[in-house]
């Protein structure tokens, strides 16, 4: 194993982690402010990817697609918030689980009706195509750009929450809902806005990742479950926790897939080692989650709420 290969795998882990962060940030924000568990978050990710692919194909421009995908996911988010989810804030989590589970069925089927049953094509923009020489390794430029995107969005989100008036309201909403309503903030509009923001982040992640993955119905749910693991590790409602959790999951998952089969390769025949290593690697992040639960039941960065 060379240093170059190791470095490349670390970058891969970071990139996976930052994309998971985009997913988790929206989920954790929505929970922190509204106390809502949204299983349909993965569907918004899928909507982002489908609209991006369709718009990029129609216009021939990836960036227009990216905007369209993010906007479509945000709009879809706002729509389901206003029509369905708004009625569920005061209900128990059980009703929220069932309603958002139903939304997965509806949104998946509508996507299939709208875009057809076959996966869509979405290519990396020409300017981000190819590889760059990092001195000791060649690395795909687009993946490097994804790392940059992820960091930029994280910074933007932090600025939004720490420095803007909207951010103050969001933080206030996390602490005391009655209070900010009493202060004259339009709480309904705030909730719709926060939900659309979370949905837009998921859509952005779907659109960005869609260029290097298969844009197909059902693409969101595996990512959703990873995002849950991230949030459990990081602490619900904490953006910082989502960042740390996402990077941990991304790096540990990538390194596990890379190193475990090699480790077993020292003790047994190659194809057997590959099988056992892959099986254990797929469980590694859940073991991590269990370990965090034993040490810090509320996650690494528990939100105050």
């Amino acid at each position: 194993m060379t240093a170059a290969l190791f470095l490349e795998q670390v970058l891969n882990g970071l990139q996976l982690g930052l994309m998971l962060f985009l997913m988790s940030a929206g989920l954790t924000l929505v929970f922190g402010v509204m106390g809502l568990i949204n299983l349909a978050h993965g569907s918004l990710y899928m909507i982002g990817a489908f609209f991006c692919a369709a718009a990029a194909a129609a216009s021939g421009n990836f960036w227009l697609g990216l905007i369209a995908g993010t906007a479509a996911a945000a709009a879809a988010g706002a729509l389901i918030e206003v029509t369905v989810l708004r009625r569920l804030y005061d209900r128990d989590h059980l009703d929220q689980v069932l309603a958002t589970f139903a939304l997965i069925l509806v949104l998946s089927e509508l996507t299939k009706i709208g875009f057809g049953p076959f996966p869509l094509f979405l290519d990396v923009p020409p300017i981000l195509s190819g590889t760059v020489n990092l001195g000791i390794a060649h690395y795909p430029l687009y993946r490097l750009a994804l790392i940059g995107f992820g960091l930029a969005v994280a910074l933007g989100l932090w600025l939004l929450i720490a420095r803007t008036r909207l951010g103050i309201r969001i933080r206030a909403g996390e602490n005391d809902r009655e209070m900010i309503a009493a202060l004259g903030v339009n709480i309904r509009a705030l909730y719709t806005l926060v939900f659309a923001l979370g949905a837009g982040l998921a859509g952005l992640a779907g659109a960005l990742v869609g260029a290097v993955q298969s844009v197909q119905v059902g693409m969101g749910e595996p990512v959703l479950i990873l995002a849950f693991v991230v949030i459990v590790i990081g602490g619900i409602g904490s953006i910082k926790g989502a960042m740390v959790g996402a990077l941990m999951v991304g790096v540990i998952d990538t390194m596990g897939r890379f190193l475990l089969p090699r480790l077993f390769g020292h003790f047994m025949e190659q194809s057997q080692a590959a099988g056992i290593g892959a099986a254990l690697a797929s469980m590694l992040i859940y073991v991590l989650m269990a370990a965090v639960l034993v040490i810090r039941p509320k996650g690494l960065f528990p939100a105050h709420a």
Binding site: F31, V97, I225, F228, V232, Y286, L293, V294, K298
Partner: peptide, 20 residues
Amino acid sequence: LSLRTSGIFFIMITLAFAQM
């Protein structure tokens, strides 16, 4: 493990372990 938490945490953890 899961009952060390409650509410929304509990939902996500039980889902994650089942997926494992």
